[in-house]
Write a protein that binds this DNA or RNA. Sequence first.
DNA 1: CTGTTAGCGCTTTCAC
DNA 2: GTGAAAGCGCTAACAG
Lengths: 340, 340
Amino acid sequence: VGERVVVSLADVARAADVSMATASRALNNAYGVSPVTRSRVLEAARRLDFVVSPDAARLASGTTNAVAVLVQHLDRWYFGEMVAAIESILSGAGYDVLLYHVNTQEDRSKFFADLPARRKVDGVIVVAFPISDYERERLELMDVRIVAAGGQSVAYPYVSIDDGRAVQQALEHLIRLGHRRIAMVTASGDTLAPAETGRTDAYRDALEEAGIAFDPELLVTCEWGGVPAAEATERLLGLKQLPTAILAHSDEMALGCMRTLRRSGVRVPEDISVIGIDDHPLAELADLTTVRQSVSEQGRLSAELLLAFLDGVDAETEQVTNTYVVTRRSTGPVNTSRAR
Amino acid sequence: VGERVVVSLADVARAADVSMATASRALNNAYGVSPVTRSRVLEAARRLDFVVSPDAARLASGTTNAVAVLVQHLDRWYFGEMVAAIESILSGAGYDVLLYHVNTQEDRSKFFADLPARRKVDGVIVVAFPISDYERERLELMDVRIVAAGGQSVAYPYVSIDDGRAVQQALEHLIRLGHRRIAMVTASGDTLAPAETGRTDAYRDALEEAGIAFDPELLVTCEWGGVPAAEATERLLGLKQLPTAILAHSDEMALGCMRTLRRSGVRVPEDISVIGIDDHPLAELADLTTVRQSVSEQGRLSAELLLAFLDGVDAETEQVTNTYVVTRRSTGPVNTSRAR
DNA sequence: CTGTTAGCGCTTTCAC
DNA sequence: GTGAAAGCGCTAACAG
């Protein structure tokens, strides 16, 4: 008995007493194999513990059965949740997921310069990642289908929320509570952040729509993150006339705002209301009111969108998922008679 | 002029007027190519925009240059941070990262039953993932190097913190503040959670070491997560004699504890101190005292460990990274004269 | 240092 | 329904 370490298709064919061609067909569920032959092959394969060589299969067939997922900030909830959802759909469909994490500018340049995924994947999903013209050009070189997950992309089919709508909902919530002096702590400067300008613009628009004059003092900008947001909030507290509510670019940043308020003895929501965007799992623990988005839904839909393309099926190329306010304890009616 | 869509090594060789073998050598930085020939090949490759077919290369060479990362709970900070760090090292070394996310029991069974990464990778990194004997057996079938990241594995080389030590440090911190009645809110029941029993056992040991009798009432168990922890804390508040401090299994859970305390009007740390483990980015925003671990360091080291093995280099197979208490505002001296 | 020669392990026409 | 044969595009001896 041979002690073959790795069993090949030839072994299976021999064991089943058929040609390699037939064995291959049987294993791939291709047409043109009699049921009895097929089961004989399958049985032999199982007995020999056969596993196809994916490389040989790919080389011969020309398809990779793999998808690249391009993502940054995987250490943040939003991105992890997104990738998890994408992976789930893709692996369920028999695709491998090649992960490319590009956090630094250096990673990023390197990725687009080298295109390490080239010839390795049938498609790529870009997660909440605004890409430059140059980067788009490079990506095109890969000559595969591209889908954007969680960011409205002008260049590619996408699945995302409507950032403007989310901001609008937040503002409507606050305005309904009587707030007029509403600040926003926003992330920017970071070209890596998604939706950076969208949310800020929407803030101005929504204010205007409500007949509230935009006050530049109330729009503070900082890097993405809770600590930067905490610092930005200090600036807000330095104002002669304080805001009665703060909208944060994301929940993490809202938590930063809340820390500053807490440390300064400002009561939330009695003195100042705070609202975030995302519905981060920890928002609930912080009693933070927020505009909820379903990240896993966006991940799922974007993966399905790519799969549809790969199957040659037409699909809606611009999908927008819902957002809505989740009211918790960090927002309340404006306090007109407060003394500070 | 030919309109070749995809340029092959043969094209490059022809353009550089060398054999395919030489072209291959030049492209792979192999020895035995004169500088001038090499540069001629490289130039031709660049001009033709040549990209090797990874499948063909793998088929011919027998190496995959890919690593599988097996992970669950990618939506949690710990896991995302870990994978990000791993990816960074691996991609820097020229490896592709195949991501396998197994969150549900179903995913998990499927993964180990099918072993979709088989024959596709040179090694696998298992992220904080206690595997069963059966699963280990299946994994062995892949016949590749395996490393555990962020969980002490009896079966594989690993990089992780010393969970017992972390708990001990937390307890030492509390005891130094005068606490004797220290509760623990711990995650368990979930076979998917890492270090689940380790931390609980360490809690008992560390108490004993400090001469504090273990009180079963003070050890409450729940599923992993902030909300379960919040509920578990309610149970604690139902006790006749309250604890003066709570150690949570993780920062997320500590935040759950804090919510219950806050909602119940229990002051932190005046009435009850709270300490977590991890140093989650949001712990800082919640002013949570915690035992810090560097997840990215563990990710980096485990990837480097695997790379060493793949290079045939010997390396330390059990690496333990440091932890230490980061004091913030959620812990304070025990309040002996408190009235509740 | 460079070229020749075999494959790597499959899939896929094309016949039968 | 099944088999024979021809590659897929590259790497790795082995010669020279």
